[in-house]
Design a protein around this nucleic acid. Sequence first.
DNA 1: GGCATGTGTATTTTT
DNA 2: TACACATGCC
Length: 685
Amino acid sequence: MATTTWLESLNPAQRQAVDHGDGPLAVIAGAGTGKTKTLASRVARLVERGVPPERILLLTFTRRATHEMLTRASRLIGADIGGKVWGGTFHSVANRLLRTYGEALGLPPSFTVVDQDDSVDLFNLVRSEAGLGERGRRFPRKDTLASIYSRMVNAQEPLRQVLKRDFPWCAAEADAIAEVFGGYIERKRAQHLLDFDDLLLFWHAAATEPDLGPIIAERFEHVLVDEYQDTNAIQAEIVRAMRATNTNVMVVGDDAQAIYSFRAADPEHILRFPDQFEGTTLVVLEQNYRSTAPILAASNDVIAKARRRYSKELFTDRTEGQRPELVTCMTEQDQSDAVCDAVLAHREEGIELREQAVLFRTGHHSDLLEIELGRRNIPFVKYGGLKFLEAAHVKDLMALLRIADNPYDEPAWFRTLTMLEGVGPANARRVMAAVGVRPRAEGDGPSPILRLAEAAEDAPPLLHDELAGLAAALGDCAVEPAPPPSTQVERLAEFLTPIVARRYDSPDVRLGDLEALAAAASGFASRSRFITELVLDPAAHTGDLAQPPHLDDDFLTLSTVHSAKGGEWRAVHVIQAADGMFPSDMATRDADGVDEERRLFYVALTRAIDHLHVYFPMRYYHYRERRDDLHGYAPITRFLPPATQALFDQRQVGVVATEDNAPRPGLVTAAAAKVDAGISALLGG
DNA sequence: GGCATGTGTATTTTT
DNA sequence: TACACATGCC
C-alpha cells in the first residue's frame, strides 16, 4: 500500500503521533480511539523512514497484542517485519536480553524462569524452615509474603513502608519478614531461579550499569510502549534507562483504563511522563471509532464519576444504534438463560459467536453459565481464571521437566517428591539434602539426578521403588545428547500416569492434557526454551495447546475483564453486575480500590461495538455447592445508579419483584432481629 | 513424637 | 483449589 494512502486513513491526532519525528511522545488514547492502529502505523512509518525493524523495541502487555500490531504493521508496508522487531511483554523481552547479557551480571547462562506459583512455593519452604509457620503466631501466609515482596520490588518502596500502608497487620513482623525475604533471595540465586520480578530487576540492573547499559540501549533506535498506564515503577525506570542514548520513546495509554494497581502499576507514570522526558509531545485521541453513541454515553457516564482522571471526553460519529440493555434477573440461572438467549438471538441476526463476548469480574463468575452453554451446545473458549499451566497435573509434569533442565530447582524437587507415595514435606527435605539440592552440593559434583539413584538404594523398601522410578525417568531425560523435548515429555508423562490416576479424579482428561503438552513441546528446539515459553506466555485455557481453534470454528468468548483488555466485540454481555461481585467486595475497602473497580467496569462496557447487555442477578446463594436455599439479595452495582440506568433499556427475567417476593427492607430487618433474638436466647444471653 | 493423609471451608484481577 | 486443622499410622 502506498504510504500516502494509509496515512490518509488516520485522523489528525493519530497522524500527528504516527508522523512524529524523533524525541519523546506520549499518547493518551481513550477506549476505542484507534490505539492499536496508531501504534502499528507508527512502527510501519518508522520502518519506512529507514529504521531497521530489529532496532525497534515494542513493549506490550500480552503476546496477542504484539502479534496483532506487528501483523498490521507488516500489512501496511507490505513486508513481514514480525520476526525482526523486538516485540513482547516486559518480561519476555527481559528474558531475551538476559539470555544474551546476563552473564556479564553474574547470571548463570541457563537460568530457570519460575512463575508466581513456584515463587509462592519457595516462600513457603523458607517460611516453614524458619519455624514461622507455628500455630498461633500471626505471621503472614505464603501468598501474603509473595505479594509483599512483589509490591516492594515493583513499586521500589522500602519494606517497612509497604507494610505500613498495604499490610498494616504484618508491620510488627518486619524483621522476620525481611529475614524470610533474605532466605528467599539467597535460595533463588543458589538454584539459578529467576522469578518474574527478577526479570525486571536484572533488566533494570543491566540497563543502568555504566559499561553495559549504553550497549543495550544502543541496540534500539526507537522504544514504543503500549498500555503505559499499567506500568509500575521498575518498568518506568527500565524505559528511562533504555533511553540513555537518545530520547526516541513513545508511550501510549489511558489513565481511565488503569486496572493493574494490585501489581503495583500506577497511572501517575503516564501522567508524569512529560516530567521524566523533557520536551515530550503530548497527543490526545478522543474520537471513538468502536462504539455507538448510546453505548459511549453510558460508558462516559460511568467513568465521569471517577475521582481523578485526565480530562477528556470521548465522542463518536456513530450516532445510530441501540441503547444498551440492563437485564434484571431473579436468579443466576435466569441470568445464564438470558445470556444464552441473547447470544443465540444475535447469531440469528448475523452476529457470529466469535463476534460476541461474555465478560465478568472474576474467573468463577461464569461457572453456572458454562454449564448452561454446554447444555445448549454453544461452543466457547474462556480466558482468565484457571489456566492450563495452573492445573495440578500439568504443574506436576512441568516440575519433572524442570528438574531435568535444572537439577538444583528446589520448588520443582519439592513438588515432585511430595507427589510420591509415602513422601511428605519432611521426607522430601531429607531426600533433597541427600542428593545435594540444598544446600547446593559443593563444587558442582555429580548431578542430584545421578545421586538420586544412589539415595534410592539406601532408602527404606517402600520408598526405594518410588525414588528409583523417579531417578530412571529423570535420568532418561537428562542424558547427552538430550532427546527431543516431546520425547522427554512423553517419558515423564509415562512416569506420571499412575500418580495422576491415584491422586486425581477424571484422570483420562488429565492424561489427555499431558499428551497435548508433548505435542506442544515438539515445536521447540530445546527443553529450556519450551519451559521458559510456557512460563512467560501461558496457554490461556486447556484447549489452547490441544487444538488451536480453527479459523472456521465459531465460538463465544468468555473472559475476565482483565483478560479482555484491548479486545472488542460486536455484542458484549457483562454479567454479575451486582454490588459485591462487581465491584468485588474484596476491593471496596478504600476509595482507590473502588475507583479501580469503576475503571474496570468502564473497560468492560467500552469493549462493545454495536450491542451491550448488562445482567444483574438479584438473588445469590451463599454456598454454591450446597443444595440448601440459603440466599440473599444483592443490590445492583454501585456503578449503575438510577441516573446511569436511565441510559439503558430495562428488561426483567424470571420472577422479579412481585409484591409477594420482593425484599422489603423493613420486614427484612424485623425478621433478622427476631432470628437473632432467638439465637441469643439459645446461647443463654 | 513426628509425619502423612483426610476433612471441612473460603476463594480477585495477571506477567 | 488449597489451606488449616484433626486424626491416626509408624
